[in-house]
Amino acid sequence: MDYIYSNSYTVITIFLLLGIILPLATVWGVGLILRPKNPAPEKLTTYESGLEPTGDAMVQFNVRYYIFALLFVVFDVETVFLYPWAVAFDELGLFSLIEMSIFIFMLVVGLVYAWKKKVLRWE
């Protein structure tokens, strides 16, 4: 039984390597032989609906996306805390339920606050 742990992670390593080898073998291996190479300056311009591209796309971006990213971090970390609680719920019993209710309640207050502050609105 003890071997199953190390063997499982060996398999995951095999999957990881296969997942890297497949793109390498097709894009840089077989593909390199099969595909034509015929560069022209027009081909190498950035696509912008057929017009001459103006400016640069790597610019400062709408802040709204980052606010959602912050909210995501809060709730994802919360979920990470919920997982061990859920696994051990049988042993922990009623006391942990009340504790977790308080924890979730505080987070729900945060969500309601963000909601009322109109952070969740996307205009």
């Binding site: 077989v30 593909g31 595909r35 081909k43 311009t45 696509y47």
Partner: peptide, 8 residues
């Protein structure tokens, strides 16, 4: 697979 690979 046989399309040209364009890297702008």
């Amino acid at each position: 697979l046989i399309k040209e690979d364009v890297v702008p």
